[in-house]
């Protein structure tokens, strides 16, 4: 079994957009999708942490994907969507511009991320999928949520 994509079945990705880019997150790690609102800022938090929010009585840390990927910040007041993922037993909310449909991605559509991808992206991208709708950038939640050393590398 090869490590990165073990199965021959089409995998499911949740499509989302970030500053016009078409990205996806693996469906199995997504717990919830909701409107990103009422986020409490956490001063002094690492860059990329948008704050904390109340998800039905649980406190969830929100991460701004634009910031993680080195994209310009969203317009103030622009709508944000919150994709709740589970990582190491904790829930996190990943903030995106919009959420699209769930897409099956067949193994043959998969390509490696090109070397020329910007540094902030390369650290967080799992693969590129060539779909009929266009290129889908698959993000790796674990890497997006690895703060500290990686964050510096990703946001330098």
């Amino acid at each position: 079994m090869s490590a990165p994509t073990p199965s021959a079945e089409p995998r499911l990705l949740l499509g989302l957009t970030l500053a016009g880019r078409f990205c996806g997150l693996p469906v199995p790690c997504v717990r919830d999708v909701l409107r990103g609102e009422a986020i409490t800022r956490v001063p002094l938090a690492p860059p990329g942490v948008a704050g904390v929010l109340n998800l039905r009585g649980r406190i969830v840390t929100a991460v701004e994907l634009r910031s993680r990927l080195g994209l310009p910040a969203a317009e103030p007041g622009a709508a944000r969507m919150s994709i709740v993922v589970e990582h190491e037993g904790e829930l996190y909310s990943l903030l995106a511009d919009a959420v699209r449909e769930v897409l099956p991605v067949p193994p043959e559509a998969r390509a490696m991320a090109p070397e020329t991808l910007g540094e902030a992206w390369r650290g967080h991208v799992a693969a590129i999928h060539q779909l009929a709708e266009g290129l889908l950038i698959e993000l790796d939640p674990a890497r997006l949520l690895a703060f500290g050393r990686d964050a510096e590398a990703g946001l330098a």
Partner: peptide, 10 residues
């Protein structure tokens, strides 16, 4: 607080 915020001394 979540692990990624645990270093915040404040």
């Amino acid at each position: 607080v979540a692990p990624i915020l645990r270093d915040l001394a404040a």
